[in-house]
């Protein structure tokens, strides 16, 4: 039986200290996050409502004017369209290729040494940074490069194809390169997920007479679902923000054929000096990323 007049374990002073203590431990990270993360975001959002920010001291409040200007700019609208297609294609193909390769390197018929070899080879694109990827593909896709040479040897092309200069194909070429550069992340994540699925499930399915296709759709996919959703959402956010590779390969050209929201923001800010409009465009990208981030966090929370 509990005594009603039981004394508190710690005196009030001590208890207060215990309350403050965790916040003190957290304070360095909280301060860092506020300074390095929240402050820049708040500044960019505030810039988007002013005119001539950064370049003059007498910026004036213009409300939603910058958003209106940006959203009626045909280049920005085409960059949104390009970004959406680019991101969707990247996520879908990353997922398909990553899944296919992960299943391949997870099969039991190969020795672990052979599988390790394949993993290293398949992982290579992810080891290269954007600059190396850009230089590599520029050399391969040069009009006098290896790709055109091989295609001409097999009589598949009549003359040199301008892979990165032909406006009708450059967008698809850029998408292909980014898919190539990004699939290993999926492969490794899915492989880790595959190795975590209990073999009991497959054995039980086999006893019940399930085919390998049925096992894939009714065991593998449901088991991998949390991982697939997480990496797809992260990929959505990363690909939306992709700048380096696009800039190094085409700089958004020729004639806006590969203009993305990221390159649009950069050009608006650093060559047109329209920091307010660039901030408005950046806030639009931020909003899109926040929506995805909310889905991501909700998904993670549900998993927990």
């Amino acid at each position: 039986m509990r005594s009603k007049n039981k004394k508190p374990k710690y005196p009030v002073k001590k208890s207060l200290r215990r309350v403050i203590e965790p916040y003190l431990f957290l304070s360095p990270v909280v301060i860092l996050m506020c300074l390095l993360l929240m402050l820049p975001i708040i500044l960019v959002i505030s810039y988007s409502f002013y005119d001539n920010v950064l370049i003059t001291n007498d910026s004036t409040w213009v409300g939603l004017e910058n958003y209106k200007t940006v959203l009626t700019d045909r280049v920005f609208l085409s960059s949104i369209k390009n970004t959406v297609i680019f991101v969707v294609l990247n996520v879908v193909f990353h997922l398909l290729i990553g899944m296919a390769l992960a299943l391949m390197v997870n099969v039991k018929c190969f020795s672990s040494r052979v599988k390790a070899g394949f993993r290293v080879v398949y992982m290579l694109p992810w080891m290269f940074n954007a600059t190396v990827v850009a230089i590599l593909w520029k050399l391969l896709l040069n009009a006098n490069g290896v790709v055109n040479y091989l295609l001409s040897q097999f009589n598949m092309i009549a003359g040199p194809v301008e892979w990165l200069s032909d406006r009708s194909i450059v967008f698809w070429v850029l998408t292909f390169i980014n898919i190539w550069a990004g699939y290993p992340f999926y492969m490794i994540s899915i492989l880790a997920g595959l190795q975590g699925i209990s073999s009991d499930l497959y054995e039980a399915a086999q006893i019940d007479g399930a085919s390998s296709v049925q096992s894939f759709f009714y065991i593998t996919l449901p088991q991998l679902k949390p991982i697939l959703i997480s990496i797809a959402m992260l990929d959505f956010i990363w690909t939306t923000q992709n700048f380096s590779l696009i800039w190094l390969l085409t700089a958004g050209g020729p004639s806006h054929a590969t203009e993305m929201m990221s390159t649009y923001v950069y050009k608006t800010a650093f060559t047109s000096y329209q920091y307010s409009q660039a901030s408005a465009a950046a806030v639009i990208i931020l909003l899109a990323c926040i929506v995805l981030a909310i889905f991501y966090v909700r998904n993670q929370t549900r998993e927990d």
Binding site: N142, A143, W163, S165, V170, L249, S255
Partner: peptide, 21 residues
């Protein structure tokens, strides 16, 4: 004109010249 000029950078151009193209 050299194929691929639309997205040729300054450094790429010098490289093509050095390569005798």
């Amino acid at each position: 004109t050299l194929p691929g000029m639309y997205t040729l950078t300054d450094a790429d151009k010098v490289q093509e010249f050095v390569n005798g193209r």
